[in-house]
Design a protein around this nucleic acid. Structure first.
Length: 481
RNA sequence: AGUGGUGUACGCAAAUGGUUCAAGCGGCUUGGUUUUCACCCAAGUGAUUGCGGGUUCAAUCCCCGUCGCCACUCCCA
């Protein structure tokens, strides 16, 4: 049997990390079995679906390297198929029109809640007489369409992650709605559970891999598979990604969409690596750094965890740094340039390329997130230094002004500037002023960078010199001191 | 309230009846390196495997109970 899996996001928001992780598992499974990974956009909720979200989802998946083999297929373009399926259910008397109003349903749930009962639809319109139906229609009520769920029914399946699963029909909340309200005789907007089953059947999906929050839906959907088709896919319900409080990670938890992670400076490789690790482990669990292709080779649901996993920024950061640090400057610089540009730094990415690469080589091994390059290198792009409080305190110490003045003197007599010349200049000042080298270095750092900490001083100096701002800064510092 | 699921250190997790330390990574602490910071390197830290019982020569692992936590119970997906 060929493996055919699908990712079925609804475009009601940007690509969420939970959806992306589901995508990762689907992709890994498909690739492992040389199957197909299909992308389907579930936009049946017209009110909440937006094209820009669809675009964001497509972009995010592409960025992560989760290429799909078919699609995107839009449910909004398949309404006819859903209507046909609904009509079939109606014709077979497996579904019926329910005229209960939302208000009545609310009241029902309220009273059930008050009696400490589980909320459920009481199937009150399952066997309406023609007269009753006519009366409701005369009242102007618009019916939804519900599929009958046998309370005594038993639904079983074997979940690839959780093993044997069993549900009672009576625990499914009563007959389920498959189409929104619309004038009797017509068929309203099809709902999720129905559309999913029709599509998965049409697309010959072999395995449904999704988050465990869908487990109850699976029981309902199996009923529809039985009514509408003759095959039922295999299911795998993956654990959820949790926030620090242990709840399902949602938009309320702040940064949760893939484009946000991208913007913050995580690499696609690192993020995909981390998402895979959240709930799955390679056969050699000590080997935590891997590319999607490597994971696909050995992916299996036997090694997918059952419990939800809390999202951990520290670990993601660490993984990201592991991808960034060994990256050659010639490659890294390409990734850094957009961040520098976004920060508003002025530079010519072509003409100044060597300088930018040199800078990248300097800060690259210290980066955690790509965006860190902004704060780390700001002082190199700025025209003038802004002195930190610490730096000013240092500059005002005894002997600093004199040392800097001496340094300025030495430098201005220099014919050509180089790393060696810089070193000898410092030594000369130390000798002339009779101060410790540490003092000169610290003063120089404060002068050139405006701060007491930062990347390697001599390298920074060389970069600054190429921009022709080093002497100016030393003068600026002398004024402060 | 019901139904389903789940519980190994601060977080992710490995080992699933059988050695000596219940792996590893992150975190945190300390040291080294850098005359700074970060990175990096090293060491250290921390778990009566939720709890109680049972089966067994032997239980993280199997069984029962219990507690906690999570998800679901929309004319959302």
């Amino acid at each position: 049997m060929t493996v055919r899996v699908r990712l079925a996001p609804s475009p009601t928001g940007n690509l969420h990390i939970g959806t992306a992780r589901t995508a990762v598992f689907n992709w890994l499974f498909a690739r492992h079995h040389q199957g197909q990974f299909i992308l389907r956009i579930e936009d049946t909720d017209e009110a909440r679906s937006k094209p820009e979200y669809t675009q964001n989802i497509l972009d995010g998946l592409s960025w992560l390297g989760l290429n799909w083999d078919e699609g995107p297929i839009f449910q909004s373009k398949r309404i006819d198929q859903y209507h046909q399926a609904i009509q079939k259910l109606l014709d077979q008397d497996l579904a019926y029109r329910c005229y209960t109003t939302p208000e009545e349903l609310d009241a029902l749930r309220e009273s059930q809640k008050a009696r400490k009962e589980a909320p459920r639809y009481d199937n009150r319109h399952r066997n309406l007489s023609q007269e009753q139906e006519a009366a409701f229609i005369a009242e102007g009520r618009q019916p939804v369409i519900r599929v009958k769920i046998d309370d005594d029914g038993q639904i079983n399946w074997t979940d690839l992650v959780r093993g044997p699963m069993a549900w009672k029909g009576s625990d499914l909340g009563g007959d389920m709605v498959i189409a929104r309200a619309k004038a009797s005789g017509e068929i309203g907007q099809p709902l999720y559970n129905l559309a999913v089953v029709v599509d998965d059947l049409d697309m010959q999906i072999s395995h449904v891999i999704r988050g465990e929050d869908h487990i109850a839906n699976t029981a309902k959907q199996i009923l529809l598979y039985e009514a509408l088709g003759d095959t039922i896919p295999t299911f795998a319900h993956t654990p959820l990604i949790l926030n620090p409080e242990g709840r399902k990670l949602s938009k309320r938890d702040g940064v949760t969409s893939i484009s946000d992670f991208q913007e913050m400076g995580f690499t696609a490789e690192a993020l995909a690596n981390y998402m895979t690790l959240l709930g799955w482990s390679p056969t050699d669990a000590t080997q935590e750094l891997f590319l999607l292709d490597n994971a696909a080779e050995q992916f299996s649901f036997e090694r997918v965890n059952k419990a939800g996993a809390k999202f951990d920024w520290d670990k993601l950061d660490w993984i990201n740094s592991q991808y960034l640090h060994p990256m050659p400057a010639t490659e890294l610089v390409e990734r850094l340039i957009p961040y520098w540009q976004a920060a508003g730094f002025s530079f010519d990415p072509v003409a100044e390329r060597p300088w930018l690469e040199q800078l990248t080589a300097l800060i690259g091994p210290s980066l955690t997130r790509l965006k860190d390059c902004v704060d780390m290198s700001q002082f190199l792009f700025d025209d003038a230094v802004e002195f930190s409080e610490d730096a000013i305190t240092h500059l005002q110490q005894d002997g600093v002004a004199a040392a800097l003045a001496s340094l300025k003197q030495v430098l201005s007599s220099l014919e050509t500037f180089s790393a060696e010349a810089a070193q000898t200049s410092i030594k000369q000042v130390v000798k002339e002023q009779g101060v410790k080298k540490g003092l000169v270095m610290k003063s120089l750092r404060a002068s050139l960078t405006g701060s007491l900490k930062g990347p390697d001083l001599m390298e920074s100096w060389l970069l600054l010199h190429q921009r022709g701002v080093d002497l100016k800064r030393i003068e600026q510092a002398i004024a402060q001191a």
